[in-house]
């Protein structure tokens, strides 16, 4: 049976776990280490942890917290937030994480991607792209928590990321973040037709069948935030993850 990776994405404001809607209104969820412990019990495929204020606050990654989380993460662990140099990446790998997620630094420094890939192997380097529509519906890549625009057209930009050694693309829809409106399948399809590297789709997931749909549009892995930290219409905080049986029934067996 073919499996795809189903990845909870946890967003941090320094040490606190929060969840945003369209990258705004961060809602306090809890302690990241507790969340990771629960995700261990639920045997999640992989975990992505993004410190969403590190770049904005011009901070280093919070190495101490990341190390504490890594000690509890018995699944592959990718970290992103505030990464601008090879030294930082080396430091992060020594703490016991498997992958780094780079976003804002790529706006000005694609070399970082190339060098990191050469040194650490492209399988450990994830390039993250936050995508937003303008009022005409044209999609563009943004960085620094959607405050800065990438000047290149979106499709040229993702192609450049692949050429410069990204091992995976993490494509996050700003417009769909936290909305439960489903993934941007059209966007994922367009990008998957352009690049050969795996695409992780993020933004908008509301149910397991969304995973299957976006896979059909070319995603190699699926990620979600709200879906795995809230439950029900009232969005009560509850760390959750589908069982293997359910994933097999509703996704894997159909692939």
């Amino acid at each position: 049976m073919r499996r795809i990776r189903v990845i909870p994405v946890l967003t941090l404001q320094n040490e606190k776990l929060v969840k945003t809607i369209r990258f705004k209104n961060p809602n306090y969820i809890g302690d990241p280490i507790n969340a990771v412990k629960i995700f261990n019990e639920k045997e999640v495929d992989e975990i992505v942890i993004l410190d969403i204020t590190a770049t904005k606050e011009k901070r280093q990654p919070n190495y101490k917290k990341i190390e504490e989380i890594a000690e509890e993460a018995f699944m592959p662990f990718a970290y992103g937030g505030g990464i601008t140099s090879l030294n930082q990446i080396e430091h992060l790998f020594k703490l016991g994480i498997e992958k780094v997620v780079i976003n804002s630094a790529l706006a000005t420094n694609l070399n970082l991607l190339r060098e990191a890939s050469n040194i650490f192997g492209s399988q450990s380097i994830v390039a993250s792209v936050d995508v937003k529509k303008n009022w005409l519906g044209k999609q563009t890549a943004y960085t620094n928590s959607k405050s800065e625009k990438i000047n290149l057209p979106l499709f040229e930009y993702v192609k450049k990321l692949e050429e410069n050694g990204a091992g995976e693309l993490f494509i996050n829809s700003i417009d769909l973040d936290g909305t439960y409106l489903g993934y941007d399948n059209v966007l994922i399809k367009s990008i998957s037709e352009l690049v050969d590297i795996p695409i992780i789709a993020c933004g908008g997931a509301s149910k397991i069948t969304d995973f299957y749909e976006v896979m059909q549009h070319g995603a190699s892995a699926v990620a979600a935030g709200s879906l795995f930290v809230y439950q029900g219409a009232q969005k009560g905080i509850l760390i959750n993850y589908p069982t293997q049986e359910k994933l097999a029934e509703e996704v894997y067996k159909k692939l």
Partner: peptide, 12 residues
């Protein structure tokens, strides 16, 4: 074509 290299996933 849907199976990318590297093989990066959980498997039995």
């Amino acid at each position: 074509s849907s199976l990318k290299i590297p093989h990066m996933s959980w498997n039995e």
